[in-house]
């Protein structure tokens, strides 16, 4: 099968690659880029385990071709923090036990990342609605909702801290 050239940014890095036109974005990320934090759960875009950010918006990478990401910016779970630092949402999911088996976690965090980028103070109803394209079979969602609420709070505190530093 002939290969297509694509050029995109993944987690801030410029990437050029040749892919089969039929290759799904999730398989390109996992197998060609080694970014195995993005998972495949259902193949029908119901479960959201494969959620990534495409130009800042949460999308399901199992129902999108890699060639469709040409010229776009992709952020995966590996890209929202670096080194030992953790994003406030990652800290919140640990502290509030927003996971059990861990398989849906990447998708949950990226979907809530997107939610909080649009709405930094969501209500419980808004959170439940936002993550209803992400399935979790272990937690019953309550601890995930609490994690997202707590993550929003941590993000605000972090932002406030940065502002204070700037003022000084």
């Amino acid at each position: 099968m002939s290969l297509s050239k694509i050029k995109l940014r993944i987690n801030g890095k410029e990437i050029e690659a040749e892919v089969e036109p039929r290759k799904l974005l999730v398989h390109f990320l996992r197998e060609d880029m080694g970014l195995t934090g993005t998972h495949v759960g259902c193949d029908t875009s119901n479960c959201g385990a494969c959620t990534v950010l495409l130009d800042g918006r949460a999308v399901k990478s199992c129902t999108m071709l890699a060639v469709q990401a040409d010229g776009r910016e992709v952020t995966t779970i590996e890209g929202i923090s670096s080194g030992d630092d953790m994003h406030p949402l990652q800290k919140a999911f640990i502290e509030k036990h927003g996971l059990q088996c861990g398989y849906c976690t990447s998708g949950m965090i990226l979907t809530s990342f997107w939610l909080l980028s649009k709405n930094n103070n969501p209500t419980e109803e808004e959170i439940r609605k936002a993550i209803s394209g992400n399935l979790c079979r272990c937690t019953g969602y309550q601890s995930i909702v609490e994690s997202i609420k707590y993550g929003a709070q941590l993000m605000k505190e972090e932002e406030k801290g940065e502002q204070e530093i700037r003022v000084r």
Binding site: T36, G37, T38, H39, M86, Q90, K91, Q100, G102, S106
Partner: peptide, 17 residues
């Protein structure tokens, strides 16, 4: 180590290469 899951650094069977 469940703390790895929030970073996408788990070791699920399909991650094994």
């Amino acid at each position: 180590d469940s703390s790895l899951f929030v970073r996408g650094k788990g070791h699920f069977v399909d991650d094994l290469k």
